[in-house]
Design a protein around this nucleic acid. Structure first.
Lengths: 199, 199
DNA sequence: ACACTAATGACACTGAGTGCCACCGATCAA
DNA sequence: TTGATCGGTGGCACTCAGTGTCATTAGTGT
């Protein structure tokens, strides 16, 4: 693994990516709970202590650049068409931010499979997804002129996120399906008030 | 506390309740993370080992009889009017199951305040709320003749739960508000497809 | 009085996460 | 070249959640 020269740029960026890969592989093959942070660190060639400098918790190692994901969502919301209804803007941004190139979909599937399947990771996900909720609620608040912690902004954030998460589950369950299609269907169904169920 | 005679019925029921009270009090006054399981056990007059026989995790000590809550929700769903649209039935059951007598609302507020406020408990809540989701998805599946793990049943479960959780947050934020009213408003708003936002 | 059973407590152990400190290599000033 | 500084690292010890094991105790039935 090279004498680790690191000519320029962020020094540990390669290391961080290596640890993420090791973690993802180990968790996927043996289960999150059955892998110790020591084993992940060993597999990545660093000490356990250093592992916890890269990631605050064992669970955080599977999230990749989630902060960047949230930032991109916020950017999409900010850049969206203000003539469009609020709810439609949020749904569009949710679909758009998950329109990954094919080359990245496999990795995303791996991550989400773990996050939505492993109990400890599912629990932890609540804390990360809450960042998304806050971003969406802020946007809805701006658009509606309300405070971000009033009912409607929170409600839109919580509901769209629930729909998006369900779409991810459906995508994981069907190997052949398209993520953005699942997102579109789920978000439209929910945002439309479940018209199909009004019989 | 009596010589612990326990003439009949479940032996440790009084103890369990005592531990829950101690946990709730300590967590509320000092914060979930700042209280050790040892301290809760001491406050309840049992050993730490026994504490973990009553509750699988520290977090579980704040949930009271949540399994019973889920069972009541299922019973309400099963007993609901089959002539009513599915979504309306789910919303009605959600409101109904949370129609607690005033005497119990204070305790509920205490629990939910912790659960939705303390990060560790919020994360853990995902695992408990997933039980509700599964129950609702099963019901929707029966009503629509689909499998419980298809998109629509899951979607209804996830969305109604999101709305209910948001209603709880609003209820906690406004000391004077009524829980069932918040639930009604939030669920109707969501189930109606956010009509107010369609401008 | 004697087994049987269930609840409990003591103890030891694993594993996540953290504080502290010593070390090592790179950079930079003299 | 030397020497001071600084960020990333590893080692160590510690706290705390959670678990397995075992001995003790108290209630129950014979």
């Amino acid at each position: 693994m090279q004498p680790e020269v690191v000519p320029a740029g962020t020094p540990g960026e390669a290391t961080r990516a290596r640890v993420e890969r090791a973690a993802l592989d180990l968790f996927a093959s043996r289960g999150f709970e059955n892998v110790t942070s020591d084993e992940v660190a060993d597999a990545a060639g660093i000490s356990r202590r250093t592992f916890f400098r890269y990631f605050a918790t064992k669970a955080d190692a599977v999230w990749g650049d989630f902060a960047g994901h949230v930032a991109r969502l916020e950017a999409l919301l900010a850049a969206g068409d203000p003539g469009q209804p609020v709810l439609a803007s949020v749904c569009a941004a949710y679909v758009e931010v998950n329109a990954y190139p094919d080359s990245q979909l496999h990795l995303l599937r791996e991550r989400m499979q773990l996050i939505l399947t492993e109990p400890a990771l599912l629990a932890h996900s609540q804390l990360r997804f809450a960042e998304v909720d806050r971003a969406v609620a802020r946007y809805v608040a701006v658009r509606t002129g309300e405070s971000p912690d009033r009912l409607v902004p929170r409600l839109v954030a919580a509901s769209t996120r629930a729909a998006a998460t369900t779409a991810f589950e459906a995508w994981l369950a069907d190997e052949a399906s398209s993520l953005v299609d699942q997102l579109r269907v789920a978000l439209e169904e929910m945002a439309g008030g479940f018209l199909a169920l009004r019989r």
